[in-house]
Design a binder for these strands. Structure first.
Lengths: 252, 252
DNA sequence: GTGTTTATCGTCAGGCAGACGACTATGATC
DNA sequence: GATCATAGTCGTCTGCCTGACGATAAACAC
């Protein structure tokens, strides 16, 4: 049967982005306010349609650049630029997830260091970094006492899946360094783990673990005192991507 | 802009299945022979178009049932029936991956116990279980000395990703029991790990590990001698889905 | 009965993680 | 400038887990 177009239904395909960062000791995600129906005025994850000649990863990188100005680096290339980590998360295709038509969304997960502003070019309050607990608590109250409406579409589920992916992946990979600037201290890296996992870690054991794992961190020679206290050594992310044995997430 | 159909391109969406099982000490995948172009006569992963009113998981379960007769059980439900484990793997959307048109394929991973035959209703040699090394070795020679053509489309990449997912996931989850019949012995479970990882494991340490992990295995009281040697205790999979600490995969 | 196969229990040493003490080097405060 | 608060870094100790491997048990084949 040579390509009868009526033999299969037609779909729109989008990419949605879970962009995570750590700000003020909290895991935050990028949210944009929808300017048109459906879900007009509600917060949603950034995303958009995949173009006709575009790969899924290309589409995700393009959307990420449009929303944040970040360039995504290829995970297989050495991470030396300021680009964010970007990987495919999962695909969501419930027939009812978009009331307009049948849309399949390929969600991607991006991890970025703390950025100055959501995006200089965007509208004032059309995009923001919000703590993930705030975005995920359905019907709760946001920072300003304002009623927090749930995210549009199935974006709460997508965000929850992305957060869970990040939480588990920093256990056995060096991905936590994607939340850090190019040079960082052991303490800053520890605060990333503490923010993502929502726990407190012993600074001494953490220091022993990360400095004792070959290829995880390479010292740059410099020191900094930007966190106060005794000056700390500066490190860059080493070539190792997998942590073996993994970093252990404390119980509950 | 109210739903201008020209505002976004149209896609076909398919599900492709990586169905894995362990036969004769080897990790095998289900392959079907393509009866029509493109790639006519070549081996491919089973799959098909997602229907207009169908969720992605539903489509994958339907294809799995059509190809194998297996019913997929919901991962959140207790695994007591003979259903296979089914989970979403990744989505592949290169613009050139199908020469006919723009197709986005949502690949799924299924794990099944050893089955009697690929599918009673299917054609004689249109489907088979093949060792994954045989399917993945490009341009090598298959079992019968016959030139092994690579899998159709990007299915070699999809299969490799599915195998890698299975290999890593049995480390930290009880997923290996999905390759076993409802009741199995510790030795049978060990042979699953050995086949999937392609290594030899110490029977004594393996026995200590799996019987010492709470909730992993529950004894049924029965014994069997179907493997020869001393009768072995029979177990069912326990309620635990996560193994902590994980099963360690030996180096190289 | 002897040999073979598989299952199961035990022992021992090394490695790693959690708990926590001790010391160091900076800035802030009096 | 002494004192304090803060953060970073190095050690120690103990318990758990793993890998290596010896020993015993219970079936079948001859």
């Amino acid at each position: 049967m040579p390509y009868d177009p009526s033999a299969f239904p037609s779909f729109a395909v989008t990419v949605d982005l879970v962009v995570l960062t750590v700000r003020r000791h909290a895991l935050c995600a990028l949210a944009v306010r929808r300017g048109e129906p459906p879900f007009q005025g509600r917060w949603a994850l950034p995303g958009g349609f995949v173009r006709a000649d575009e790969d899924l990863a290309q589409a995700a990188a393009r959307e990420l650049a449009e929303e944040t100005g970040l360039s995504a680096h290829d995970p297989s290339a050495p991470a030396q630029d300021n680009g964010a980590h970007l990987e495919q998360l999962a695909t969501y295709g419930d027939p009812q997830r978009d009331p307009r038509m049948r849309v399949v969304s390929v969600a991607h997960l991006a991890l970025a260091p703390d950025l100055p502003a959501p995006r200089p070019g965007s509208d004032a309050d059309s995009a923001r970094w919000a703590p993930v607990e705030e975005l995920l608590q359905q019907g709760g109250y946001g920072r300003d006492g304002e009623q927090a409406a749930p995210l549009a579409f199935d974006h709460a589920q997508i965000l929850a899946d992305g957060v869970e992916r990040a939480r588990s992946k920093i256990e056995y990979s060096s991905l936590a360094t994607a939340f850090c600037p190019p040079e960082f201290t052991v303490g800053e890296l520890r605060r990333v783990y503490e923010a993502v996992w929502g726990v407190a870690l012993d600074p001494r054991n953490f220091h022993r673990k990360v400095t004792g794992t070959p290829g995880f961190l390479v010292p740059t020679g410099g020191t900094t005192t930007r966190q106060g206290g005794r000056p700390a050594q500066l490190f860059r992310a080493g070539g190792a991507t997998l942590l073996n044995p993994p970093m252990l997430r404390p119980e509950v």
